[in-house]
Design a binder for these strands. Sequence first.
DNA 1: GTGCTCCATCGTATTTTTACGATTATCGGG
DNA 2: CCCGATAATCGTAAAAATACGATGGAGCAC
Lengths: 113, 113
Amino acid sequence: MKTIALPDRDERLVLVFKALGNPLRMQLVRYMAEHPQCITGDLVAASHLAQSTVSEHLKVLREAGVVAGTVEGPARCYCLNEDTLRWLREEVAALTQELEACCAPEMEETACC
Amino acid sequence: MKTIALPDRDERLVLVFKALGNPLRMQLVRYMAEHPQCITGDLVAASHLAQSTVSEHLKVLREAGVVAGTVEGPARCYCLNEDTLRWLREEVAALTQELEACCAPEMEETACC
DNA sequence: GTGCTCCATCGTATTTTTACGATTATCGGG
DNA sequence: CCCGATAATCGTAAAAATACGATGGAGCAC
């Protein structure tokens, strides 16, 4: 807690959550899930927003490791980073499990949970 | 896409991601995972921030359904909402699976992914 | 080289988030 | 009923995120 920095793991986790915690970026991610080989221009067209805006959002997703963008001729081909998504799923699962180990069996009346 | 609202599912997903996409809130969640019966005051003490600040963050987590706060005498007992975390894990898993169904086997050279 | 297409970055205005102190509300104990 | 303890809410200031047009840069065709 306090002023001390978060462990790298949580820092990355927060970065990924923050990247996914925006409506447009969520839509971009969904679009990429449905269109595995898409280019920035496709995403711009689908979003109905300015090209620069979409580009900024793609940067956030890139920096969080949620997507990868490879140069494909003059364009850039974007796709989701499966490793990150798998890692994210496991981190969320770990949170749940940590809980079950604590709150699990017979403490119904002891307190809130 | 466009100006049309997101489906409820994505709206909720964004809300949860946004709630978790903040360093302090992440720390609060971790604290709750380790201390299943904690009170607002505990979280305030651990965070070294003003009580009102922590209370606002707890509100964000509550409204996203990430935590539940039950009245426990004059205090409020907070704990993680396991249902939400399980749901979140499944949503993330669904994203990954959707991808694997598309990009899966032998398209190594066709494009970026 | 010139030009063209595609995209990232820059500068800026607007909106949202964050953090704080002060205030208000609620629950018990006397 | 009044009090003390515990938290939520309000008002405000500072910081960050968002969206845009304009500019700049990299790749390819010619």
